[in-house]
């Protein structure tokens, strides 16, 4: 046993300083995809939408007149658009991609009479900001996780949160086995018909106040299973979602950011430089 302790000590402190020290470039893989519309032509927009396996990029119309809708919440990170148009679709290396409002992940472009595409103002729904939850859970959050039909990728990343690199306990975050002790419900997977009941029962068993976090493309938008024969999701059709974490699966740091965002300990980053500032906090 002592050899374990010595061996453990010898490996030193490996825990990341994220989020206190800002972003550390440990991750080489993107946490989400961002659209930089400046370089995009109408023809490219139409062709890239055809290759998207989900509804993350949808386009309609012709090269003369048309629209394009981009939804990072439906993106499954297949890499088709980022390889096809690396200038316009860029993997976000900053893991702080979680948002409070679903529409924060969306963007639309329109073009007419052959002019280049320009952004359209989307109707932004108000974010669900739970000030009481923020105040109460500021220092510690107990999380109940429910797998509502994921592929196990999200669970694998959630398990990495407990590994020394991320170590979520240092931030006062804990997984709890019982919903009675839980403050937050973290849901992964498109909600399948068979998991709808257990999911809602878990939510009802949690005391107020409580926050719901949708983690991963499946829970956020349905992802690749959005039109599946047993899909009941996306999650916000069933429960009031306070935080959305995109990704397929979300990287562990993105999950950590999502959890901190849910309790008001982090701020939204994704899409902020695009001039959309409807965040109430």
């Amino acid at each position: 046993m002592s050899r374990w302790i010595v061996g453990g000590l010898r490996s030193g402190i490996r825990t990341t300083r994220f989020p206190a020290a800002g972003v550390i470039a440990e991750e080489q893989a993107g946490s989400a995809v961002e659209m930089r519309w400046g370089q995009l032509t109408a023809a490219q927009a139409l062709s890239v939408a055809a290759s998207c396996p989900t509804e993350a990029i949808t386009a309609s119309g012709t090269e003369e007149d048309g629209t394009l809708h981009f939804d990072a919440g439906a993106c499954v990170m297949c890499g088709k658009c980022t390889r096809q148009l690396p200038e316009a679709f860029v993997p976000v290396l900053d893991p702080r991609v979680a948002v409070r409002s679903r529409s924060q992940l969306q963007m639309a472009l329109a073009w007419e009479s052959g002019r280049p595409p320009t952004p359209v103002d989307l109707i932004r729904e108000a974010a669900l900001v739970q000030r009481r939850a923020h105040r109460l859970f500021r220092h510690s959050l107990h999380i109940r996780h429910v797998d509502a039909g994921s592929c196990n990728g999200c669970e694998s990343e959630l398990q990495m949160l407990s590994a020394p690199y991320l170590d979520l306990h240092r931030l006062g975050l804990f997984f709890t086995p019982t919903p009675r002790h839980a403050d937050a419900l973290l849901v992964t997977g498109v909600v399948t018909a068979n998991m709808e009941g257990p999911l809602l029962e878990t939510y009802r068993a949690m005391p107020e106040p409580k926050v719901v976090i949708a983690a991963g493309a499946c829970a956020v938008s349905g992802g690749i299973f959005a039109n599946g024969p047993t899909a009941r999701g996306p999650l916000d059709r069933l429960l009031p979602v306070a935080t959305y974490v995109p990704g397929c699966p979300p990287t562990p740091q993105a999950l950590l950011h999502g959890l901190l965002l849910a309790i008001g300990q982090a701020s939204e980053r994704y899409g902020q430089d695009l001039g959309d500032d409807d965040d109430a906090t």
Partner: peptide, 25 residues
Amino acid sequence: AQYGLLKEEALRAAGRLSGHRYLRG
């Protein structure tokens, strides 16, 4: 924890090589 460290390193290697931690796409 020791094996967890190695798993995270392997996942990061996958991310570096393929652009996706679970080698998708």
